[in-house]
Simulated scan of single mutants.
Amino acid sequence: MTDSVLIEGLAVEAIIGVYDWEREVSQRLLVDLEMAWDNRVPAASDDVSDALDYAMVSERISAYLVQAQPQLLETAAEGIASLLQDEFGVRWLRLTLRKPGVVPTAAAVGVKIERGGR
Rank of each mutant, 00 (worst) to 15 (best):
I113T: 09
Q27W: 02
L97D: 01
T75R: 13
P100M: 07
V90M: 10
G79S: 01
A63G: 08
E74H: 11
Y64F: 14
W37E: 01
K112P: 02
A77T: 02
M56H: 05
A68G: 08
T96V: 14
V102M: 12
R118A: 09
A81W: 05
A55C: 04
V90I: 14
V102I: 14
Q69N: 12
F88G: 02
S62K: 15
R40N: 11
E87M: 03
V18A: 12
I80R: 00
V12A: 08
A63C: 04
G110M: 10
W21R: 08
D46N: 08
E13L: 12
E74L: 10
G89S: 10
G89E: 10
A77P: 01
A36T: 09
L84T: 04
I7P: 00
M35Y: 03
A81Q: 03
A44Q: 15
V57D: 11
G116P: 07
V25R: 15
E22K: 00
V109A: 12
G79M: 02
D20T: 06
A106D: 06
L95A: 02
V109T: 15
G116H: 02
T96K: 12
R94E: 15
G89L: 09
L10C: 10
P100S: 08
A107F: 07
V5E: 05
V5M: 12
Y19W: 13
S62G: 12
D3F: 08
V90N: 07
I7R: 06
E87N: 11
V109R: 07
T75N: 05
L33F: 02
A106N: 05
V48M: 12
Y64D: 08
T2Q: 11
